[in-house]
């Protein structure tokens, strides 16, 4: 390996930006979908555990006995709205409107922040009432599933914040690649939204 100069590997890996002809997709698009498939299995395992534990329980509390439906409804609306702004941010990339992109991406991050704040209020009020994961299996499921989901929201926010701030430098240098990145981040964000849309009914309403 005594090559005198090293070519940056990004330059010689094909299909990082442009789609491959026969698959019609670029590498990142396939990568994120495969990642989401594994996420489906992760949450699938947890949802399956929830079903098995609930079916096997003598008594299973209704969500409203412990949880606040208004707060969760607000959170559902916030997360769906942030999914919409995420799409708008991507659309602004395609339309090459940097101002709008910044606005919508910023709103998306704020939506995530709002969700986390409400989650924090909910958690602290549970702790305040003496409800902990160890109290009963319903609360164990609640804290584990929403906790893991909150971690996903947090990581999505970090990525989006990066693309809103320092990562946006690529807007001017490699626009298409940047657009792909925003789309990929969006796919993850929609997935996180979708998980919540399952969590909301099974924990709060059913």
């Amino acid at each position: 390996m005594a090559t005198p100069t090293v070519v940056p590997i990004d330059k010689i890996i094909p299909h990082t930006v442009k789609p491959r002809e026969d698959t019609g997709l670029n590498n990142v698009k396939i990568g994120i979908w495969l990642f989401l498939a594994s996420e489906v299995m992760l949450f699938g395992g947890l949802f399956a555990s929830y079903i098995l534990l609930r079916v096997g329980a003598d008594r299973w509390p209704r969500g409203e006995e412990y949880l606040s439906i208004p707060w969760a409804t607000a959170n559902t609306l916030i997360l769906i709205a942030s999914s919409v702004t995420m799409v708008m941010a991507w659309a602004s990339c395609i339309r090459k409107d940097f101002g709008k992109y910044r606005l919508y991406m910023g709103l998306t991050v704020l939506g995530g922040l709002g969700f986390m704040i409400i989650k924090y209020i909910e958690y602290t009020s549970k702790f305040h009432h003496g409800y902990f994961p160890s109290t009963n299996t319903f609360l164990a499921v609640y804290f584990t599933l929403t906790g893991l989901h909150a971690l996903h929201v947090l990581s999505g926010m970090i990525v989006n914040l990066y693309f809103w701030g320092p990562g946006a430098k690529m807007w001017h240098t490699e626009h298409e690649r940047f657009t792909n990145r925003v789309e990929t981040a969006g796919l993850f964000w929609h997935f996180v939204d979708l998980v919540w849309i399952f969590l909301f009914p099974i924990l709060y309403l059913l």
Binding site: M41, L42, P133, S134, T137, A140, F143
Partner: peptide
Amino acid sequence: FPPLEAAAFMQLMDRVAGTSF
């Protein structure tokens, strides 16, 4: 692997947070 990861989280909760999964 992800379902085992889910299971590992639950066992971790059992051990650390006192749940009874």
